[in-house]
Design a protein around this nucleic acid. Sequence first.
DNA 1: TCATTCGTAGACTTATCGTATCTATAATAT
DNA 2: ATATTATAGATACGATAAGTCTACGAATGA
Lengths: 132, 132
Amino acid sequence: MKYSQATDYALHAMLYLVAEAPDKPVSVQLLAEKLGVSQTYLSKMLTKLVKAGLIHSVSGANGGYKLKRNQDDISFLDVIQAIEGTTSLFECSFHHDSACLIQQVVADAEQQMMHTLKNKKIADLVPHIPKP
Amino acid sequence: MKYSQATDYALHAMLYLVAEAPDKPVSVQLLAEKLGVSQTYLSKMLTKLVKAGLIHSVSGANGGYKLKRNQDDISFLDVIQAIEGTTSLFECSFHHDSACLIQQVVADAEQQMMHTLKNKKIADLVPHIPKP
DNA sequence: TCATTCGTAGACTTATCGTATCTATAATAT
DNA sequence: ATATTATAGATACGATAAGTCTACGAATGA
Ligand code: SF4
Ligand code: SF4
């Protein structure tokens, strides 16, 4: 069980947007080049981020993507859930109890993780970006 | 991103073993019937649990599986890791920094979850098993 | 000893999902 | 208008999960 590689791309793209966040939108072409991934594929993830309300897209010449919200509001959880979805980590196959304990234990644990990811903002690590 | 269904089966099998834990080993045939899954498939998971040192197998007539450790020592994390493996939730594609922050944030969050799963023992919810 | 019962292991098939590409379309700046 | 850029859908490919089948080995008991 792993996060998809798409999440990896999305996190890096967001980090770039937050770090270099100018007024000008940055094109998927530039981002894709930085990340070493194809434009068309990366655009799928960016579109998901748009639909999640994290970034804003501008069509046409000199268009691209820029942040929508205040950058300090964007957490790791936001990005991850935008890509991976919000379905819970564990779903039992039988459902014979509405308040089942196995499910509840795993859900609890997942909540712990989500809490940490929610409190960590992308902007938090801008000062520490490693050199590519 | 979800836990595999195999984890679901393994957790239920363990719960059954802990709850009904007699001296006599319980056969995969019985377990498979209880869980509504084929014997051969379930046996794969049980074999993983054996290799992880959680249960003990007895060959031959009247054989089967029984707990190895003290049942109070068996945590959710033990079972989950036996099935899913122990590779971390997130691995970046570039690795240009040995102490990368993106990776570290996610790893931290995962640790939170693992901590919760480690403190929760299978035996904890024996008193609350729902009726199938 | 021999047949029966039961776990182990590997090869194998099938289904599902992540990864990736291509193409057509809509929106916008110059 | 034309070039530029995001969006959407179809499609193909590959990896992994899910599940089956069969042969083998170990223990029991008759
Ligand atoms: S015991 Fe809980 S997790 Fe298992 S099948 Fe029933 S409701 Fe689902
Ligand atoms: S920034 Fe961190 S997570 Fe991203 S590629 Fe570099 S080391 Fe990996």
